[in-house]
Amino acid sequence: MRVEMHILVFDINGRLFAFDLNYVREVVKIKEYTRVPNAPEHILGVFNLRGQIVPLIRLSNILNIPDTEYSEAVILVYDDELVGIAVSSVKGVLRISKTDIRQPPTKSSEFISGIVKWNERLISILDVGKILNKISGNEI
């Protein structure tokens, strides 16, 4: 039996990543956000999503990739709270079979749970739980 899943594919600085669609609530354009002084490096700032204050997170230092310009935010739901992940652009939703997911190379980031090949390009599937734990556990 083929077990299928949907993933939301996005691009950060030219590299493709994806979240399990189940964790994604919506995608919004980043218009303006407020910087938060004294905040850890991964917190870009906070923004207003229909009256709710949502933190905007960049993954560059967590995934060890260069920082870049961000134009969209993928809104994830974590523990009843919303979190915005800043991305360069959202590519779309892909239906994949779980058997197509390959183990990530051992030296790659602990936050990548699998790799999937699509149109001759590699997409790193991110471990939402691990990333969010890392973000919220980080204290100053």
Binding site: N38, A39, P55, S136, E139, I140
Partner: peptide, 10 residues
């Protein structure tokens, strides 16, 4: 501010 941002001093 929610959990992620709580604990930021000031």
């Amino acid at each position: 501010l929610g959990k992620i941002l709580s604990g930021i001093r000031g």
